[in-house]
Amino acid sequence: MTVVTVNGIEQKIQVDPTTPLLWVLREQLQLTGTKFGCGIAQCGACTVQVNGVAMRSCVTPVSAVAGQNVTTIEGLAPGPDELHPLQQSWIDEQVPQCGYCQSGQLMSAAALLAQNSSPSDDDIDGAMSGNICRCGMYSRIRKAIKSAAGVQQFEPSAVDFLEGETNG
């Protein structure tokens, strides 16, 4: 049995300890927001955070995260009916198209911002180049990260997000 804390909840998991964390999340814990894309840590769709660091869950055996804190997309928002600033800026910049890669993109971006509150373009390239978006929304992701980084420097509630129109 492997014990892992996922989104703040301690989980006791009965699987072969070599099973990648991705499949434990999706099949044992029913946390399907984390996606399967390649199985070999090439695309980043499966990105989660382990103790705040972005990790590719498709190649991380569940045994490797025993006793660690895992955060998935379902645990990214600070609370129910709230959004992480990145999730809000993802909507404001209308980032997703098909949306399949976006859980991984957001988890990588959130790990970046947690370490670096005002990332440069090079910092964004470095942190985000492990995440493929086949819809090609890179310029929107970059813009959304920068805009969320700006938001984080202020009180989030002071920022008025316009509903309806972007006129971008």
Binding site: L31, I73, L76, W90, I91, Q94, V95, P96, G99, G168
Partner: peptide, 14 residues
């Protein structure tokens, strides 16, 4: 007019 896509909120929270 630019309107927000309806399908995006569930695509940012899994």
């Amino acid at each position: 007019r630019d309107v927000q896509r309806h399908d995006l909120p569930p695509k940012v929270d899994g």
